[in-house]
Amino acid sequence: MNWEVIQSYLPLYEKAALLTLKIGWLGIAFSIVLGFVCAIIRHYKVPVLHRIVGIYIELFRNTPLLIQLFFLYFGLPKIGISIDAEVCGVLGLTLLGGAYMAESFRSGLESIEPIQTESAMSLGMSRLQTIWHVILPQAISSSVPAFVANIIFLLKETSVFSAISLMDLMFTAKDLIGLYSKTIECLAMLVVFYLLILLPVSIIGSIVEKKLRFAGFGE
């Protein structure tokens, strides 16, 4: 290990980490919104839309992100749609994450017994009130662990962005190795930077999981 080398690479890694974080968090934020909407459409079987959403989820859950990115970045320009690499990254992550988030959230929705809806409505709540005050809080609570797992998964998926020329952590490391052959330093820094990004997520995630565990009985 050569500490001077590590020091001289630090700014490049910081820049790469910021890009990874920027694309990662934007993609995750959008995928939560998308997943939420899709899950509701699927759960309440909105006519026509729920079939389209079903196809979308199966398509994106069962193809690798790398292929989705290739399609967005190299395929779409062939039919006249040119998208900037960063936007492609966010879009790819959103579409992939949306499909995963939708399934996690749907499992949360489905874990709530129908009797709760029936009870709430028999107490005079409207359908929307039932969803908002009774179903959603519990569904969110029970899908939090899956959400956190998805977030970590999506952040790690950013490591394939090098395929579309985004200088994320992985590509920066590979590129520096190619340029200067300081393999050990580059790989060690890569591990440390990913840990720096992901450890807080996993720690905060487990705290949030505990705080939000109010659905269900017997605790």
């Binding site: 190299f74 395929a163 020329s165 590509f171």
Partner: peptide, 9 residues
């Protein structure tokens, strides 16, 4: 520079 990791890309 716009860097790619393979010739094909």
């Amino acid at each position: 520079l716009q860097k790619f990791d393979t010739y094909a890309a």
